[in-house]
Design a protein around this nucleic acid. Structure first.
Lengths: 341, 341
DNA sequence: TTGTATGCGTTATCAA
DNA sequence: TTGATAACGCATACAA
């Protein structure tokens, strides 16, 4: 059986209280008894029951994240790296990370109610905001500490702590870059419409076209699901329907990688026939052939920042400014091809 | 404040016990009162305090894993995918996953004592066994449920539940494949020596050479740290020191990907001048150019299997046969180049 | 059908 | 310097 304070108390002849305080290092316990108790505790291999402590303290030293964890998401390096940043930083502050896998078949809000409402964590990190996000509404109205990767959709208020990249500007930069390289017909593969950042990226795309005096054509815009496969499918569909396209921007690197394959499947060359740009700058972007032009965002550091921010919120020392909007950075690589004259 | 059974009891006029049983769906409570209580609970937004429940039930419905989670490990798709498999399967059984990041600066055993000894989880998954693994010794001697990805080093007993791939055979297959393709001088990049599977892979390499009547040359064998960088460095070092090498086997795909770059840095072509083989078959293996020959192991499924196994152990229904040894599978791709005559 | 009492393991308050 | 007691929130054995 597991060793408890009671066991040590019995063995040592002291009360549970004294044992607790001796082990807790309080100075109101006699040095001799402290030593005796500590020795016995070590001998018995005592480990405090963290659950009991959590109940008593009403705090878990754990932060939570509810995330897609199926096999399709295995390649989703944005999430993989974000989680590493979170877990790493949490660990530095002696916090653990509770991960609840979000199965497509399960109601996501149930998970939030269970984990957050059930006191399993001191706070949560919400990733990939939705338009009119019910998770945020729930956490806000229940005063559960949380921080968000991403902000609300345009037009909604973002009255919570978040870190986001200004992806509207990011997309504009990508379009400007392609225009500068001589492209007139630029396709766009968006994330699912219910995600908040999708609207920003679409706006950035339009901004870029506007600035260049190019027309916005709805038929050049398509939606993927952020995974590799859909990038390929959408790219192939775009190319087949609109042979005049010479460039495609995919709204995350994974879809961009898929798009590269789609380009090849159409018998075209990436960079030379069709330029490709992604978003995120996951490691694969610089290792793929040809290397992938993309919008960089510091994913690991965002995970770090979200975590320190969340710990601040938990300990009620949250800074006044709630949102942090990072500048995106265009990283030009081989998939841009050469400037056309 | 947070709603408890007590609050509902007061509001409804029933006792805590009755409330508890009404909400628990027991049939020894009057249908009318049940309805009344449920309504009030819903109105008040009641969520059971899971921590209290865990303390009371002495069970957490959580499994744990202690894993490296720094930025260097971000690309470590073996772990990324394994964790997805674990979290996914856990979720299917209504279990959550507690991740504790293992910082290089922290004592790993402390984490095990804290998490496992501290009752935070019902069981643990141990990944990447060490030679003479203290984690396994600790968990075994404390009767804490656990399962292991990987088995003990050769010569040690593996008296615990594990799933492993027969990587000795895997390496032998890789060598035989390269020999068949006409290679006589095959370099090897091993994982760190303290990992248990390193010895198996080295033995498989030797088996392959023996079977082909080729001499084992210690100078063809080098050690990496499983990351991309070290694959590159070790490959470059091997090639420079031994220009007669025409093939290199790296013991995981990430190092193999690094090795591919190393080959190029030496002015050579992957596949044509130097054949490369990896181990794991992470997604990148089939997406890199040229595609990577490797030893396949079903990582996600291993995560699934480990988890169901662990849940069996936790509920005391563990099968008799403790270990599962999977057959490795050689996947030949472009990095093998063409058969030489 | 409902309520009382007890315990899970810990820590803090207060009295001795 | 030490110990008895209570509380965290829940669920059960047992009594009514």
């Amino acid at each position: 059986m597991r060793v408890t304070l009671k066991d040590i108390a019995e063995k040592s002849g002291y009360s549970i209280t004294t044992v607790s305080r001796a082990l807790g290092g309080f100075d109101d316990v006699n040095e001799g008894t402290r030593k005796r108790i500590v020795t016995i505790a070590d001998d018995m291999g005592y480990q405090p029951n963290l659950i009991a402590r959590q109940l008593r303290d009403r705090r878990t030293n754990t932060i939570g994240i509810i995330a897609p964890m199926n096999i399709e998401s295995a390649e989703d390096d944005f999430f993989n790296i974000l989680i590493k940043g979170i877990a790493h930083t949490a660990s530095l502050h002696r916090y653990d990370l509770l991960i609840s896998a979000q199965l497509p078949s399960h109601d996501e809000m149930d998970a939030y109610r269970r984990i957050a409402g059930g006191n399993r964590v001191d706070g949560l990190i919400v990733a990939r905001t939705y338009r009119d996000d019910p998770r945020i509404a729930y956490l806000s109205s229940n005063n559960i500490p949380f921080v968000v990767s991403g902000r609300s959709a345009p037009g909604e208020t973002s009255d919570f702590h978040y870190i986001d990249v200004d992806s509207q500007t990011g997309l504009r930069l990508a379009v400007e870059h392609f225009v500068d390289y001589g492209h007139q017909h630029i396709g766009l593969i968006l994330p699912p419409a219910h995600l908040a950042f999708t609207a920003y990226r679409l706006k950035g795309y339009q901004d870029g076209l506007d600035g260049a005096g190019l027309p916005f054509r709805e038929e050049y815009v398509t939606y993927g699901d952020l995974h590799r496969e859909s990038g390929q499918q959408q790219a192939e569909a775009l190319i087949q329907a609109h042979p005049e396209l010479t460039a495609i921007i995919a709204c995350n690197d994974l879809m961009a990688l898929g798009a590269m394959r789609g380009v090849r499947n159409c018998g075209l060359r990436v960079g030379e026939d069709i330029a490709i740009c992604g978003f995120d700058d996951i490691p694969a972007a610089q290792h793929v052939t040809p290397t992938l032009t993309t919008i960089y965002q510091p994913i690991f550091e965002i995970g770090e920042g979200l975590t320190t921010r969340l710990l601040n919120v938990i300990s009620q020392e949250a800074p006044i400014e709630k949102g942090i909007l990072l500048d995106p950075q265009l990283v030009i690589r081989e998939s841009s091809g050469k400037k056309r004259v």
